[in-house]
């Protein structure tokens, strides 16, 4: 019965046109960025870094390198935006439209309904993150050759890491698996607000504001010592996959904290939803 209800929850989510419009926007953004790398001098920095280190440019200026570069703006901007949009819609949109009242005239418990919705949102986030990785690599392959991976050490200093073709692909895929945690957490954050009595747009804006405030505070130089206190620091765990060696303990710690955040978000949302009155 739970699986049947979950299947229908997915129908509601994936049946919307705007779901695919969002996907389309992502794919368009990926292609624009890839074309910029192909037809402008945007790869100049990478070339100089490789040549300066005595590495063959043709072996590392590849589709997987460009796909990795494409992930950065997507993961920082579009993914949180879209995750928050989906999370903000999950409950608040149904309340706004009036379908929530129809659902809650049935014997399903509120907790079960929220669990179904959260799981649907989480699955959507996973599909989104993984498909972004696959499409990004596929599109980059149209313009760049296959080969090794040149990865900048985002947020870790000016250095870079080089991977052999097979190793590079494994790190690229693992980064997207870890990126799912970011997408789920942002979705879950908007989901909490969505459980309160507010418009879907308000839930989305609140979640994005919370993220933005964390991001700004985390990047203030005086707060460097306290970086780990901010959720945005842990949301960037996917980038550490490109470090050599991967800092597993730090990553495990961050993923555990994100799990804790998600559980907390869900409990807050469920409590708010449980006590609220659902009116027309």
């Amino acid at each position: 019965m739970f699986l049947n209800q979950f299947k229908h929850e997915l129908w509601k989510l994936f049946g919307k046109k705007r779901t695919y419009i969002g996907f389309g926007a992502f794919l368009l953004a990926q292609n624009v960025i890839i074309l910029m790398f192909r037809f402008s001098n945007a790869t100049g920095g990478m070339r100089r870094a490789l040549e300066g280190g005595g590495y063959p440019v043709t072996e590392f200026l590849t589709s997987i390198t460009i796909a990795t570069q494409v992930v950065i703006p997507i993961a920082y901007l579009l993914l949180p935006l879209y995750g928050a949009l989906i999370g903000g819609d999950l409950v608040a949109k149904e309340a706004e439209d009036g379908t929530l009242r129809m659902i809650l005239s049935r014997p399903i418990s509120r907790l079960r309904l929220l669990t179904l919705k959260w799981l649907a949102g989480a699955l959507f986030s996973i599909v989104l993150s993984l498909s972004l990785g696959l499409f990004g690599w596929a599109f980059a392959s149209l313009w760049f050759p296959q080969g090794g991976l040149f990865a900048t050490q985002l947020g870790e200093g000016p250095g870079f890491t080089l991977f052999t073709p097979g190793d590079g692909l494994r790190h690229y895929l693992l980064a997207h698996v870890v990126l799912c945690s970011k997408a789920i957490t942002v979705m879950g954050m908007a989901f909490v607000f969505s459980c309160f009595n507010m418009k879907p747009a308000a839930a989305t804006v609140l979640a994005l504001s919370f993220l933005f405030a964390n991001f700004v505070l985390m990047n203030i130089p005086w707060f460097q010592e306290y970086r780990t206190w901010f959720i945005t620091h842990h949301l960037n765990a996917w980038q550490w996959v490109f470090l050599q060696p991967i800092p597993w303990s730090r990553m495990t710690e961050s993923l555990s904290l994100l799990l804790g955040f998600n559980v907390t978000f869900f409990v807050i949302g469920a409590t708010a939803f449980q006590v609220r009155d659902i009116k027309s």
């Binding site: 019965m1 049947n4 209800q5 229908h8 129908w11 509601k12 049946g15 919307k16 046109k17 439209d97 009036g98 379908t99 129809m102 659902i103 049935r106 014997p107 399903i108 309904l113």
Partner: peptide
């Protein structure tokens, strides 16, 4: 009465009945 307008009437009935 409001429904999931972007789905068919049949799908709406499947979705809503699944909650019971």
């Amino acid at each position: 009465p409001v429904f999931y307008d972007y789905l068919s009437g049949w799908r709406n009935l499947q979705i809503l009945s699944a909650y019971t």
